[in-house]
Every structure is written in structure tokens, then in C-alpha cells.
Design a protein around this nucleic acid. Structure first.
Lengths: 135, 135
DNA sequence: GCATTTGCCTACTATGTCAATAGGTTTTTA
DNA sequence: TAAAAACCTATTGACATAGTAGGCAAATGC
């Protein structure tokens, strides 16, 4: 289940993309437009800056802006960053995990196939794909 | 993320399918073979009996058996039962939820498409599909 | 018929994550 | 130099997960 962290992150990107005027956009404005707590968004946006998805600028006139063009963001990387993992089960989500049942597990192929499908779908979706539409 | 409840349920079904000899199989045996706490499995198996996925029999000589043939179980219904929902986001997972953003939400089409893909995949997988293979 | 084996039932608990909230500090520029 | 903004640390309430614990009920083999 995708949590608010990942979903809010996508909405922040969409908001920045749609209100792009070249200048930095204050988080306050985004929070008001999206009806999300600004304090909570700070946590999310911080991770996005660290990962290079956004550029932040402090001080008066500061705010956030996209670091790339909308078509160069894919939804998978955003969710992966905010959610930690996109894998459906622990054994695939935890990198160093060496499951004792690995060799004989009859359900592993199912999860592996499922994982690949989810991964391919989300990494194939671009931010710009969400912008086409009304308004 | 699929929890142990759903994953264990599938392993119980697989175990019953592979050790089927016509008689009821005690949960103790399943727990030992699968290396899962019998007490915890009781909780999971109870829901499966209530839903009609399994038939339980009390007393000496009792245990559990499948209520259908392996090819008549699909993975989606099992996970849906144990996990409560397969939908990736709250607005789709909660039946009566009427999201105030519904009309204007730019991310809803994404989640709807994602939801359908996951649903179709899991409901298309049969228990018997997991049985074909080594051993 | 009675002890044993089995499922069935209720309650409890430790741990962790989610979704925020709270309050302050630093940076920048108008 | 004061206002506006990002940035940082800590805390909290609610809830879900993954079990544990102990006893009750039912059915059968002897």
C-alpha cells in the first residue's frame, strides 16, 4: 500500500510542474493549493531535495523548483525514494536479506514475477503522463 | 506490501494440496513442515474456514483439507481475504470512501490503472500454478 | 465411557510504522 | 535589519503487525 509520503511527493512534483514560472515556489503555496500540512510536507520535500529530485532555496524569495523536465521524472523512482521499496514482500524488499527458504520456496517465483510487473509499470510512468488532461 | 497473513495462507493451501491423501491434515503437521508458529496459523486458518477456502474438522483425526481442487483457487481471492484489500491506495481500498478530490485528482487515473493491473495479475494466478515445478 | 487429540475462542502484548505536530535555528534577500 | 523562507530535532497518538498465552469444545480411538 502506497502511503501518504509517496502520494504527497507526486502531488508536490505535479504542483511544481503545473505552476512553473521559472522562480522558486514557496512550500507554503504548495501546501495551501494541495491542502496538505506544510510541516508534514517539509519532511517529504527534504528527502526529495537530498535525492536531487528538487532544488531548494532558503531565505526570502526561496522555495522549491524541479531539477529536471517533467518527462524526465518517473513515478517509480519517486515512490521508491519515499516508500523505501516497491517490492510486495519482505524477502524481495530487503536488499541483504538471505531467506533460508530461498532454494525451495514455491511462492518466490510468484513474488518475483509480481515485483517485476509492478516495477516495470511504475518506472514506465512519467510525471508528464499525469499532466496531460483537463485543466 | 503483502504481510505474513496472506503469505502464510498461500503456503498452507500449497501444503495441503501437496500432502493431500483424502484425510484431514492436522495443523500441527503443517506448522512443522512450514516452520510457522501453530498458534499464529490458527488465526489465519480460522478466517480461511469461515470464508470456505478450507474445511476444518475437530477432534481426534481432525484437521484441515481443501474445499476445492487446486486449480479452482486463485491467489487474488486468498490475499484479498487475508489482507483485507489489494488496492495500492486508500481511496481505492476503502469501499465507502468518497474522496473530496475525486473529481479533480490528477493521480487517480494512475492508481486506478495500477489497481487493475495488480488485480488482474493476482486473480489470474491459480494455486495449481505454484505447484508445477521441482519436487 | 473416557482420555487424548484436535480445532476453536478470547484476550493480551511487544514492536514498529504512519501521519502528523511542535518549536526552534539558520539562511537569504527585499 | 526584519521578514520570509528553508532547515533541523524531537515528540506524539493512533493503528497494524506478528505473534503469545491459556483455556474451552468437539470428536474419536481404545
Amino acid at each position: 500500500m502506497i502511503s501518504t509520503r509517496g502520494r504527497y511527493a507526486i502531488r508536490v512534483l505535479l504542483d511544481l510542474a503545473e505552476n512553473d514560472n521559472g522562480a522558486y515556489i514557496p512550500l507554503k503555496d504548495i501546501a495551501e493549493r494541495q491542502q496538505i500540512s506544510k510541516k508534514y510536507l517539509e519532511i517529504i520535500v527534504k528527502d526529495m531535495v537530498t535525492a536531487g529530485l528538487l532544488i531548494g532555496a532558503s531565505g526570502r524569495g526561496g522555495g522549491y523548483k524541479l531539477s529536471r523536465k517533467p518527462e524526465d521524472y518517473n513515478i517509480g523512482e519517486v515512490l521508491q525514494l519515499l516508500e523505501g521499496s516497491l517490492s510486495p514482500v519482505v524477502c524481495l524488499a530487503t536488499p541483504g536479506y538471505n531467506c533460508p527458504r530461498k532454494g525451495s520456496c514455491k511462492t518466490l517465483p510468484l513474488w518475483t514475477e509480481f515485483d517485476k510487473m509492478v516495477h516495470d509499470f511504475l518506472y514506465g510512468k512519467k510525471l508528464s503522463d499525469l499532466m496531460t488532461g483537463a485543466e
